[in-house]
Design a protein around this nucleic acid. Structure first.
Lengths: 227, 227
DNA sequence: CAAAAATGATAGTTAAGCTATTATTTTTGC
DNA sequence: GCAAAAATAATAGCTTAACTATCATTTTTG
């Protein structure tokens, strides 16, 4: 994808920002440094004061772009899912075999992410890490309904829908396509985290990408039509 | 289990508290009201000031039991996993068929939890909700390694081990028993949350417990020995 | 019943998460 | 090229969370 360098701007729901960060130099610096800083210190220890310092601006200026650090996280995860929808479209272009399409999709969501380089101010590898580690905090709370009403999870839901449709193409009677795909997405994130920090909760196999292997197997066995 | 009323005290790693809450009346009131309050307002909006108010004690008194609200959450989740190990032991007592044992175990971790009543000051149903919603926050962060070193996840790891052993009993060559079980545990929590708040990320089927059904199927298909 | 331990009451520190105000710089439209 | 408008910088301040410290009072226990 690196060589494409399309001048694409990914859509993010406008409820998630006050002033569009793509619309100015400062906005882009905020995004770039925001990703760097969250990646480095973790979302809990991240705040706008530190972010302002890291790019020599003021806290107040950042607040003109984002209402809060949670909104900024939601902006980033939205961007991430838009980006993945776009990656998925490329990955499946000109592929007609349904099984192959699903296989590629599962790889996309379970494999590690490398920096794409297509967007100057966004390090996709770091962003992926942030989404894996921190995005569950955005929905695992009591405010989930009001955040959801603001459209914060739309891009994620769309993405899950896309792959669920591929599942149904292969097995139109399968009852749990969305559950299957969201389980794989969140599970893959979690299992890589376990592998790095809580290895007794997962399994690692020499010479294999255990996470990708495990979930691919799960998916194709789950939707098998034996009966 | 209600009628047992054994005088059991579940073990919790001593790094997780300063003064054992089971050792005093105040300690038990803190646990009881803590569960109620976290359940009610969510972990983010929970704090020791509010907790102190709710039981007419002082913030300082609570700090004599727990170093921080995060430690208190870890204490509660540890207790929860000890309790589940104990529940599992009962559930599998006198069952010899390996498949039946695994089936019952999967039910235990995927089904909704009802209040047990065996422990005066702990509402297990509320605690289950808390663990489902908030416990991922305890490991999805940059401090995971130091928290882990303190033994905060031992009970969880033990519990996952137990069920993984049942998996291996059925299929000794299966490569991913821990990944499978931790995927099911965390996934089941997540999918119920989705069903309640983000239904487009899951699937619901009338007349069925979709979550329990989905994960049971996943597990038994995953470990099938076809080749 | 005295000593020790636990609890209650109160106060204070540091930092996060904002908001407000005004000065300065940058952009833009004519 | 310049005035008006917009954006940013600098500074200050407010409220609340997360703790820590101190001392008086109550409860427990040997």
């Amino acid at each position: 994808m690196q060589d494409l360098k399309l001048n694409i701007q990914l859509q993010v729901h406008e409820n998630l920002y006050l002033k569009h960060p793509e619309s100015s130099k400062l906005g882009k610096r905020i995004i770039k440094a925001g990703i760097d800083l969250i990646y480095e210190v973790g979302f809990e220890d991240f705040n706008f004061r530190k972010l302002a310092q890291s790019i020599n601006t003021s806290e107040a200026s950042i607040y003109r772009y984002f209402e809060s650090k949670v909104k900024m996280l939601l902006y980033l995860t939205n961007w991430y899912w838009s980006w993945n929808e776009y990656r998925l479209a490329f990955l499946l272009a000109n592929i007609s075999n349904a099984k192959e399409k699903l296989k590629r999709s599962i790889q996309l969501i379970t494999e590690e992410v490398e920096n794409d380089g297509a967007f100057e101010h966004i390090n996709e590898a770091k962003l992926h890490q942030i989404v894996a580690l921190d995005s569950p905090k955005a929905y695992l709370n009591k405010q989930v309904d009001s955040i959801n009403e603001e459209g914060a999870f739309l891009k994620y839901k769309n993405f899950v829908d896309r792959i669920s449709e591929l599942v149904l193409e292969l097995n139109p009677n399968y009852l749990y396509p969305h559950m299957l795909i969201s389980t794989v997405i969140e599970g893959a994130h979690m299992q890589r985290h376990f592998a790095a920090h809580l290895p007794r909760l997962t399994d690692q196999v020499k010479g294999k990408d255990a996470v990708a292997d495990f979930y691919e197997e799960i998916v194709f066995k789950a939707i098998e039509t034996t009966k």
